[in-house]
Nucleic acid binder design. Sequence first.
DNA 1: TTCAATAATGACAAGTATGTCATTATTTAT
DNA 2: ATAAATAATGACATACTTGTCATTATTGAA
Lengths: 78, 78
Amino acid sequence: MGQIRNEKLLIAVGLSFKKVREEKKLTQEDVFNDTGIHIGRIETAKTNLTISTVYKLCSYYNIFIQDFFSNLKFKINW
Amino acid sequence: MGQIRNEKLLIAVGLSFKKVREEKKLTQEDVFNDTGIHIGRIETAKTNLTISTVYKLCSYYNIFIQDFFSNLKFKINW
DNA sequence: TTCAATAATGACAAGTATGTCATTATTTAT
DNA sequence: ATAAATAATGACATACTTGTCATTATTGAA
């Protein structure tokens, strides 16, 4: 019954979202105030986020979801 | 407490995954036997799947996750 | 048309993503 | 070094995803 979970992917996604946020000089609180999403758990790879959450964050950061995945700096063994 | 859910996104993702599967002449049962994932609920947009599930399906279908999102045929209002 | 193969749907259990809030740790500026 | 700002962590509740299984609907081949 265990959820599918890919730690390396979650770390790559979390660090990438963190990088995007920091480049935009936003705090986690800023993101929360604007979106209602607690990004902390995502950035630290504690959560296996849904695609709707990925989409909402990408929209907020003004990036295309495909570009987000293309530019994951922290590479995985695809 | 409601989950974030983007119906249009889920429909686009579901139909895209279905298209990929059909192009490969695979049945839902094939996919289940090979991956343990019940793709039916995903293809019919009943479920807001996690990125780990997206990743696992993309790996199985042998496509890059970024390409999957780039090629969503059923466009959303990004 | 009829039958087999496939897909869709529904229900249940287990574990979890998310919202909420509090507390502790870390970073940054002075 | 100290204080303020920010991030990390932990716990709880709710609704959800996923695995599992059964049933019904649809499709496709003869």
